[in-house]
Design a protein around this nucleic acid. Structure first.
Lengths: 209, 209
DNA sequence: AAGTTCGGCAAACGACTGTTTACTGAATGG
DNA sequence: CCATTCAGTAAACAGTCGTTTGCCGAACTT
């Protein structure tokens, strides 16, 4: 549906990609709110005016980056949820997947972490809405597990939010460790596994609210 | 010790305060990285050059704001930790204190939440270092509770970090709810209490790692 | 083959930026 | 009372900024 195979379209997509990549690269040590149109186009190798052929705003570029970043996150979450196995193996798999995802999509993850509470309302809201959808998805997956037999919808939702928040915290921690001590990464992974084990223990003894 | 009662000093402190307040006010819907010296001095009612009588950088002003913000946070945490009582009442008290703190120190809390992963390295590191100290403090307090009799130091530390991360997430959620639906605040508080209850349940059945 | 679409460019607009300079005048201290 | 300190000022510096304009030329349509 989105093929648009013309040469024209292909070249336009290429420029758009260059702008997104330039933005993502510059946002490694900068905020979206402090980014400049000229800055982005300079990095992308285009003229300033060219930017407006693709986005009306820098906020629009930010929203586009949110969609990109969350698409890959979505794939990651599904890959954890659909795996079956005992609680222990599931925890190990989940932490591994998070760790690898942060490594392989560092710029996107950093962008999300930085702009989640950043100064651009549109972007903030886009991220939060999508994280809410993630929580709903996690909640549905949890409902299918036998451990959640007698759980109310509200309790399932709060558990899902706890998991999502924990995932976000862990990903942020991995991000900071990434560019400093590589040994710290293992400590973070170990801590995250322990925390998930503790939560899992609480789940098994939960008796409703 | 820090009295410096001269008229001169008092007037200087007043200007410094004006700069800090102006910055805090502007950072309500902006990032520190996108803040300008002229912007701050304009809001504070001073000339641009006056800024440099107080701070070398905007980053320095940011660090000063971090110290302010964390001082009040420190008081809050202690007030939760020193209270005694059953697990249930302790949870209720903790969530109440967080909620009130966010309401009463909204600008400071928003600043912390926004700059924790923001674009200014100095500020990021200042916040993270202090949050680490909070976790250590929480860990020490947890060690004194009878529930933690057989817990290893590592397990206590991971529990403390879980609590601190949860507090940060909850505070951020309160912050967003603040300026939208006031009823949402109660939902967030209820969810936070349930999550703490779940963690508390996991604690009671923990058998070491 | 001729006409149209449209992505990209150079140039120009006024506005705003961080920082330094030399200076003013009130608080300070002998 | 006189000399000194020093927070604050106005002015100027050389830049960068976002955005609009008119134009070009290659890709598309017919």
């Amino acid at each position: 549906m989105n093929h648009t195979v013309g040469v024209r379209q292909a070249q336009k997509q290429q420029s758009r990609r260059a702008l997104l990549d330039a933005g993502l690269h510059l946002l490694a040590d900068q905020n979206l709110a402090s980014l400049g149109v000229r800055e982005v186009t300079r990095e992308a190798g285009l003229s300033p005016a060219a930017f407006y052929r693709h986005f009306p705003d820098l906020a629009a570029l930010g929203v586009a980056l949110v969609e990109e970043s969350l698409a890959s996150l979505h794939v990651m979450i599904r890959s954890v949820l659909t795996e079956a196995g005992g609680a222990e193996e599931l925890i190990d798999r989940a932490v591994d997947v998070i760790q690898r995802h942060v490594r392989e999509h560092q710029p996107h993850v950093r962008f999300l972490s930085r702009e989640r509470h950043g100064g651009v309302r549109q972007v903030r809201e886009a991220i939060d809405a999508e994280l809410g959808r993630f929580a709903a998805e996690v909640g549905s997956a949890l409902a299918l597990q036998p451990v959640s037999k007698d759980w109310s919808a509200q309790d399932l939702r709060m558990l899902a939010e706890l998991y999502v928040d924990h995932m976000v915290s862990t990903a942020s921690a991995f991000l900071e460790a990434q560019e400093s001590d590589p040994a710290r990464e293992q400590r973070i992974a170990a801590t995250a596994r322990l925390q998930l084990r503790l939560i899992s223990l609480g789940r098994r003894h939960w008796q409703g609210s």
